[in-house]
Design a protein around this nucleic acid. Sequence first.
DNA 1: TCTTGAACTTGACATCGTCAAGATTGCAAG
DNA 2: CTTGCAATCTTGACGATGTCAAGTTCAAGA
Lengths: 202, 202
Amino acid sequence: MPKQKNSYHHGDLRRALIDAGEAELSENGLAAFSLRRVAARVGVSHAAPAHHFGDVSGLIDALAERGFRRLLDSMIAHQEAATDEPYEQLIASGLGYLHFARSHPALFRLIFSDHSGAAPSPEVMATAGAAFMHLATNVAAVHGAAPLAHDGARDEVMACWTRVHGIAELILSGMMDAPDKDDKAANDAMFRSIFEVQFRTS
Amino acid sequence: MPKQKNSYHHGDLRRALIDAGEAELSENGLAAFSLRRVAARVGVSHAAPAHHFGDVSGLIDALAERGFRRLLDSMIAHQEAATDEPYEQLIASGLGYLHFARSHPALFRLIFSDHSGAAPSPEVMATAGAAFMHLATNVAAVHGAAPLAHDGARDEVMACWTRVHGIAELILSGMMDAPDKDDKAANDAMFRSIFEVQFRTS
DNA sequence: TCTTGAACTTGACATCGTCAAGATTGCAAG
DNA sequence: CTTGCAATCTTGACGATGTCAAGTTCAAGA
């Protein structure tokens, strides 16, 4: 199946549009995102995407799903490069989360955009659930337990997620200084020094 | 100075546009934000805002500044309704942050949108600095010290900020369940149970 | 009174998302 | 083999949007 057999019938337009959409997103950001430019980038008419995604939110949804998968992949990759020690793996996962957010800021923001109006598609929620379970497994391993086994386990997972997520968001918004995203050692130190702080009732 | 002396020369158009922009933001969200609708809402021609804000990002910037001020106000208000105990004041500030985020989601997202391209205006950064200092004072009081006095104090403040911010963002994105935003007791319990979790090296 | 500049309007333009209608093609039934 | 059908893609149009240029109105100082 050649990439382009003829002018009509692209062959794998859906995938091509998602690829192009991802590229447009990193180059121009979400605010300047345009369906017509994505179509033009693939070399297809401006109305072609409608048949595969309905309207623009359909493409956005597909991009969100891919983004979530990439986020999970980044966590896994960083974790696999770490020690077997459970806590080190948790830290590594968090650093993978951070690295993805900073490498693909627009995609990251897109994933966590306001889904208050239209609920995210089932595929997106499923991928989000997978990422959540990954974290839950990390956290549980630190306690030497099964994921979500004991009371308050869910709170622990959310405590972890919100911390990592908050750091990522504040860095992206420019409110928080951070070392170059590829300086592993510096980010490791920065992350631990914030992640591990504890507040006490005086 | 009457609100409307005649058709031309509105009198206080800049303020009126910011008011209308804020209303539009809460009603339709950032994605559907339109300069022309804001102008129409005030009863002014579609090109009138340009004279006061340049382009659309000028109005957005003004809205961000107002939003930051409202965020700080919400923190202060909640804190003043709490005990004198420093840690309780810190928690109350966080709950005020959360309450603002959930009461004005679009404005909250706007404040922390991607400023990577154009730097936020000096006014916005100044207001953001005031919010940061408020938190720094809270955190320092827990340790019975002056703001940012000791080594690592900045990390402690950022640890606090990122935690509160992460909770707010994940709730807004729909990734985290939370009690009704006006149920004070339930939110207090939820917030503490996440904020106070500590992770240890196994 | 005259004039000058700020405040606002009007009209135009390119671009955007979406819709309806037409063109093209793969494919399976006959 | 061919013939019709449904999926795929194109074309053209519409209203809405941000921005620019040129014109209009008004207040206030010379």
